[in-house]
Design a protein around this nucleic acid. Sequence first.
DNA 1: TTTTTTTACTTCACCAGTGAAATATGAGCC
DNA 2: GGCTCATATTTCACTGGTGAAGTAAAAAAA
Lengths: 165, 165
Amino acid sequence: MMDEGVERLSDALPDLPADKAKLSRLMLMVGSRLQEELEHTLKPHRLNHSEFLTLMILYSSPDGSSTPGELCDYTSQGATNMTRIGNALVGRGLVVRSASEEDRRRVRIGITPNGRRFVQKMLPTLFPRLSGMFVGFSESDQRQLGRLLRKLADNLDRLDEEIDR
Amino acid sequence: MMDEGVERLSDALPDLPADKAKLSRLMLMVGSRLQEELEHTLKPHRLNHSEFLTLMILYSSPDGSSTPGELCDYTSQGATNMTRIGNALVGRGLVVRSASEEDRRRVRIGITPNGRRFVQKMLPTLFPRLSGMFVGFSESDQRQLGRLLRKLADNLDRLDEEIDR
DNA sequence: TTTTTTTACTTCACCAGTGAAATATGAGCC
DNA sequence: GGCTCATATTTCACTGGTGAAGTAAAAAAA
């Protein structure tokens, strides 16, 4: 159904790479469907994706702490948004901010015991959905999907580097 | 690098379906990278993804027109946002709004000659990037990726239908 | 050592998208 | 015909995210 539009386009503009257009449309669609699914299951815990990811990184980091800058890199969020995320998590007592001593420009953000308990309680509620997403995927399917996604990601990285058009 | 976090998590919470967690993280990541790439190449034309999609649907529809409601279905945007998209496109003279005669609740949105010219000019500029995304993908790779993405989409649909937890 | 440049984070103003309520019309029922 | 219910679109208030400018401290240059 989604492909029809591309077909009709293809008639009018014959040099359109129609199969790639369909693939990228599909990829975009599934990506945002997955995102919605995740946000939906996160909602009862009053977290959005980026807050969740940030909290998970802190939880699984060796000393349970990091800095806004690092968290930006890991989550690919902008610094501006990381400030907001920090505020939100601090506001709920899941993390604390403190001044860094070795470099006074920096801020340390550390997960609290409260935050750890919260993660331990909410994380398992995501497992069933996670498994449900991949029912019917053989071992080989999963490997293939991983391989193809990584290849696509590499291509995207390369496109980025190329002098901007 | 992204997998390490999941590994460490997996130690602490052994019943986490680690490979699926990685896959879904990867899928999420590539999806949003692709989205960014698209928005980036659309930016010079002062369109965002949803405006572009809406315009493309109008362009490739038999009579060049539709209604907000239909466009919401095709683009999976909310009605609210479709109002904004309409305003934006009307504001640039690419489409026009008119009252529907058979059902006076409805609005017809039709692409203008100007809008058609705009599409014909801007669309081809996307082709090179589109091809660039899939360099190194064999025919079979493309089919596989399509198959796996559709399977994932089906699973997500099924998850949606299931009584909400 | 002072000056300049770079880095880390925050603040502010804005863009894109959402849910809930408002408005208006159409459809089904008595 | 009037009443109730459903549908189509818009408006409003809000969330999540971004870019540009501001602030402060560290690092590099003079």
